[in-house]
């Protein structure tokens, strides 16, 4: 009886944790320095993944791709019609100006690498 309760409760708690950690909790946003930031494409993630940016400014996103997996080769900015192929090992700069405040996701083609620009 106790086992049954323990297992079920832990299962439900685990589900809660998964939902909280992956869907509700947001990673801390990194601010840009002089509207410029280097984003590493490494170990299956964009680092930093969440970037705070200023609206109306020209933003310089300098992508340095270290992963060689084919998924990492393209970065697509959703809702901005911007995409770029990233060379391995060299910095590729993407320049953007966003006038509308909001959250803009950037992902790889398959949506496994995920990052976000928070424009305010």
């Amino acid at each position: 009886m106790i086992t049954t309760i323990t297992v079920n409760v832990s299962g439900i708690v685990l589900i809660g944790l998964v939902v909280w950690w992956f869907l509700i909790k947001k990673p801390k946003a990194t601010s840009m320095q002089n509207d410029s930031i280097e984003i590493k494409v490494r170990d299956g993630v964009y680092d930093p993944p969440v970037i705070q940016a200023t609206k109306g400014e020209q933003l310089h996103l300098r992508f340095l791709r270290e992963d060689t997996s084919p998924c990492s080769e393209v970065v697509v900015f959703h809702g901005l019609d911007v995409s770029a192929e990233l060379p391995v090992g060299t910095v590729h700069e993407i320049t953007l100006t966003i006038d509308e405040p909001g959250e803009y996701e950037f992902t790889c083609q398959m949506g496994m690498y995920r990052g976000k620009l928070i424009v305010a």
Binding site: P27, D43, D47
Partner: peptide, 19 residues
């Protein structure tokens, strides 16, 4: 090894992937 490494990195970013 790269799968575990990537999964851990993603986990730290509140992010889950294929890995």
């Amino acid at each position: 090894g790269y799968l575990y490494h990537n999964a851990w990195k993603a986990f730290l970013n509140n992010h889950a992937t294929m890995d």
